[in-house]
Design a protein around this nucleic acid. Structure first.
Length: 427
RNA sequence: GGAGAGAUGGCCGAGUGGUCGAAGGCGCAGCACUGGAAAUGCUGUAACGGGGUAACUCGUUCGAGGGUUCGAAUCCCUCUCUCUCCGCCA
């Protein structure tokens, strides 16, 4: 959520930054108008309230010092008090409604892109920052797509998963399941070593949690909902991890907080019909190790760079070729101010595919989730900055391994760092 | 699912109609003591919104929403959540 005060005080700059995302998608004018109305009413209302409080106090004093509670003097004051109450009864609902309306509009506005975020209209204008691991790109043209090799090896089973659930689900079988577990453990171990504290959170989350991280209210159709209970299947561990501290005021000395978590993730993938229909790339349920940071605003840029490196370290350890791109303003996620994607090389599609997305949200989520900190000795509180990144998406990592580590004889080599986990060298 | 208890400041916790934005403690900050520190003593310390360059000032907030009253943390109603016991169960 954007700071209403910032919108009020620097409307031109705010509008300009929003236009960088989409030149006509967002208009802050209605918010400015409502805000002005709201403040006018607030001024009126609080003056009236002050008068009413004054009368209340006077009545109390008079009665205590001997006035007749049923006398004319008290009756007159009560009359005036009732009068004010009647006026307030008109103003208060108006103010409340305006506030709710403003809040509602604010919740629909995306974050402002960082000044440094490259300007562009869509993913074609994202900027490649660096590549790693070209030397590991195989020149072999006969590589099979990962779903074919997975089915051949009997480790991926799509048809029966469809029977159990529906399309876009998979069964991992035997060594496939073992490889998935190995990847989860390897990634967690690596991130714990890098200083993240592991959490195993609930994967059902409530509406408030999804609102804080920005999936709601705008993207309700993207998540699975349990209607009876105000619970949703989490689309990413970003949600439970970021919400760990929702509504709390932390001490500055507690920051930074670094958490990692493995969870299954659930996405409806509404509107992606026909895209990536085969394989592990786009499933309704997938596993992911997620990294989340809550940091002091002064450090968020450095923390962001470090986060990207923590994610990259996994790909490097697995010797999977990848590139880092920075998303342009037109491709930036709703809550992100700045975002780097890691894209892993998939030889059969002859392209790089997203395997991690590392975003800095600045105070956007913290404001929605009311996550603040206070500095010892200083008055007041501040919103902290939140960041998150995949470290990494497990299914896509599995796909990348199956394709990049294929041997001519149809088997797949296990990356060296995983061998201790899975206790074999070849699939 | 049945019965009961509870939700108060950064944290813990007292408070059953006006003197309550709220005792006390912890934490934090300042000062004193000390070579320095610990301990101790004194003092200060809620958030949010509006107005003001500022000092400051007004309002709102004691889980949420309604109600009674001139006046509600306190009384009434509804809801949410938490805890305890019983039942069921991985």
């Amino acid at each position: 959520m954007l700071d209403l005060k910032l919108i009020r005080e620097q409307p031109t700059q705010v509008q300009e930054l929003l236009n960088r995302r989409d030149s006509e998608g967002y208009d802050i004018q209605p918010i400015l108008d409502l805000d002005r109305q709201q403040r006018e009413i607030e001024t009126k209302r609080s003056k009236l309230s002050a008068k009413g409080n004054e009368i209340g106090k006077t009545v109390g004093q008079k009665i205590r010092t001997g006035s007749d509670p049923k006398g004319a003097e008290i009756a007159a004051l009560k009359e005036e008090g009732n009068n004010i109450k009647a006026q307030l009864a008109e103003l208060e609902p108006q103010e409340k409604e305006l506030k709710a309306h403003i809040e509602n509009l604010l919740l629909q506005l995306p974050n402002l892109p960082n000044e440094s975020t490259p300007i562009g209209k869509d993913e074609t204008e994202n900027v490649e920052i660096r590549r790693w691991g070209d030397e590991y790109i195989s020149q072999d043209k006969k590589v099979l797509p990962h779903w074919e090799i997975g089915e051949q090896l009997g480790i991926l089973e799509f048809k029966r998963a469809v029977k159990i659930a529906q399309s876009r689900f998979v069964n991992l079988v035997g060594a496939g399941a073992a490889l998935e577990r190995a990847l989860i453990n390897f990634m967690l171990d690596k991130q714990i070593e890098a200083g993240y504290t592991e959490i195993m959170p609930p994967v059902l989350v409530n509406t408030q949690s999804l609102t804080a991280t920005g999936q709601l209210p705008k993207f309700a159709e993207e998540s699975f909902k349990c209607d009876e209970d105000d619970l949703w299947l989490t689309p990413t561990a970003e949600v439970p991890l970021t919400n760990l501290y929702r509504g709390e005021i932390l001490e500055a000395s507690q920051l930074p907080i670094h958490h990692c978590a493995y969870t299954p993730c659930f996405r409806r993938e509404a509107g992606s019909y026909g895209k990536d229909t085969r394989g592990l790339i786009r499933l309704h349920q997938f596993n992911k190790v997620e990294l989340v940071k809550l940091v002091h605003p002064d450090n968020s840029e450095a923390e962001h760079q470090a986060l990207v490196q923590n994610a990259e370290a996994i790909l490097q350890a697995l010797k999977l070729p990848y590139r880092v791109i920075e998303l342009c303003t037109g491709d930036l996620g709703f809550g992100a101010a700045k975002c780097y994607d890691l894209e892993v090389w998939l030889p059969t599609s002859n392209t790089y595919r997203e395997i991690s997305s590392c975003s800095n949200f600045h105070d956007f989520q913290a404001r929605r989730g009311d996550i603040r900190f206070k500095e010892a000795g200083k008055k007041g509180t501040k919103y902290l900055h939140t960041l998150n990144g995949s470290g990494l998406a497990i299914g896509r990592t599995m796909a990348a391994i199956l394709e990049n580590y294929q041997l001519p004889n149809g088997t797949v080599e296990i990356p060296e760092v995983l061998q201790p986990y899975i206790k074999r060298e070849v699939l």
